[in-house]
Design a protein around this nucleic acid. Structure first.
Lengths: 82, 82
DNA sequence: ATTTAGTTAGGCAAATTTGCCTAATAATAA
DNA sequence: TTATTATTAGGCAAATTTGCCTAACTAAAT
């Protein structure tokens, strides 16, 4: 497995999360608190610096009250994975 | 973060992957080879034994030629996360 | 029954993430 | 400007995943 470093897909996922978070008028800190994640972790995820896990994505989606497909709303073969 | 152990959501994700894999007539070994993952890892994911990462899900989806939303096609607040 | 393919299990070291911390930078408001 | 909030950065230990391996178990077919 490669290091998360710079993955087009992860940055896309991250900016989708950020977009949805702001649409809800939440700060990273609020999202962190309500999802039970760390602020630093939410930040790493939004910036695509980390290859995070299914469960963390799910927790975030639950707080943002969106289904995960909102986060993965891209065409899989139009996106560079790594 | 909790250990993957028994998560309803992860077993759901896993069985979705399995369903799509079989729909393509692939074995775990073939899926593993084509996605660049380990056979044991594909197995762990399908059984929901592990809280795998966004990138691995993406690699699997690419091989199965489906968008990730096929894997996350459940209502987020109808599913127990952990 | 025997072979063959497919799935599952488990151990182990290495790699990576995660939580917790402190602090620096950026943005906003007052 | 000053103060306040928000984001970003980085280090570190602990937790977890991942790849690699061997082996056991299941199913299916012949």
């Amino acid at each position: 497995m490669i290091k998360a470093g710079k993955s087009k897909l992860l940055t896309l996922v991250g900016s989708n999360i950020r977009e949805q978070r702001k649409a809800q008028g939440l700060t990273q800190q609020q999202l962190a608190y309500e999802s039970g994640l760390e602020l630093s972790q939410v930040n790493r995820i939004e910036l695509g610096k980390i290859n995070t896990s299914v469960l963390q994505i799910a927790k975030i989606c639950k707080v943002l009250d969106i289904n995960p497909d909102k986060i993965f709303n891209f065409n899989i073969d139009e996106v560079e994975i790594e």
